[in-house]
Design a binder for these strands. Structure first.
Lengths: 118, 118, 118, 118
DNA sequence: GTGGTCTAGACCACC
DNA sequence: GTGGTCTAGACCACA
């Protein structure tokens, strides 16, 4: 697994987990990999995975059963979708639109680039 | 001047300068404010501005005349536009499109959000 | 460690590192001393070492693993050799040859001086 | 006239003058361009040329006749040749040889590169 | 006046 | 523990 430099690793792992939830790969109620397992497969320090899990738990996306492991919360998929949508529209979108204008990329250009990417 | 916490200040100042170049506010060949002046107006340490200038110089966006100051490079506007466009299309756009799909935001939704922001 | 005055210290430390890589003293994949450690052994401020490391990282000679340290990049030895050879042949050599001619030092003189230095 | 970043401009101008003397373009006893003239032709601040002249005067390569101008000293050509030869052999040559070895450029390689440059 | 470098010391996020 | 950033302040060479 490769991480980019810009974001903390524990955040990037969190995004990966959310992605898996959104894609339905990890369903609600399912158990996540143990911290150690996941750390090994990600080639990362267990502390880092632990931090990811803790962070996601605080957002109620996953929950912990002591001694057993972490599980995807019920309703997680919807919750993640709503949360990310809100953040995206409130924070990312304005920056994106500003940049599109600054770089003189019209909505038509964008639409075309969008369809190319399919 | 206010800076957000996500990016280093010296980067944000660099982006501000590029923006000014793109908007035609600072034209090619024009002298930038001296390190000290700019530091005062940005309410920042001179070292920080120095770092910004050095970084932009490495990208050939500005150049230095010894003992005189920094100047906008000839062709800078175009260069910045091309560089940022390339980065945007190669790196940001794929992430954006991926996210749009993941969040089930259609191109129509996006278009509407775009027009609302005007 | 003694530094001469002509070049910035952070550059001289960079040259030292490259030399160590070229000589095979620091092998690819190996971890460099931490910024603080190295600063102490060089009798220099940590900021200075940091600057050296950052500069070498930009040239892809070393890379950073977050929270762990800096490492010699794979292929670094060859890369450094090629880079320095290119710079030497393209930039230094012409100046040297020009100077040899200007100072009326023949190739034979040079050869002799070379062998004396052994 | 273009100057590189590494050396001070006043030094580079000094080297140019010495070169002209060595090449016999500016002969002993001849008057150098006035500070102002030279500054204009070099696209440089007169202070800079002044500093060059002062420095060369201290080395007795040129001399000043008040109100008239600077002149190439008698015996300058020989003096410059000796001085530069000494500096070259004492200081530059060891560095060059060390670098040749580090970069694995043999004397044969060097000889070949030398002849190519003709 | 200009920028370039360096130190000292601090704070922070991250692993 | 690791590096990254920033400030404050100093000194220097250069134009």
């Amino acid at each position: 697994m490769l991480f980019d430099q810009s974001n903390p690793i524990y955040i990037q792992i969190g995004e990966l987990i959310c992605e898996n939830i959104l894609k339905g790969i990890w369903k609600e109620g399912e158990r996540l990999p143990s911290v150690r397992e996941f750390a090994i497969s990600m080639e990362v320090n267990p502390n880092t995975v632990n931090r990811t899990y803790t962070t996601l738990q605080e957002k109620n996306i996953i929950f912990n059963q002591r001694g057993i492991g972490y599980f995807v919360s019920p309703g997680a998929e919807n919750m993640v979708l709503q949360m990310q949508k809100e953040v995206f529209i409130e924070e990312e979108l304005p920056r994106i639109i500003k940049k599109l204008k600054l770089l003189k990329i019209s909505l038509e250009d964008f639409t075309q680039l969008y369809s190319i990417s399919d």
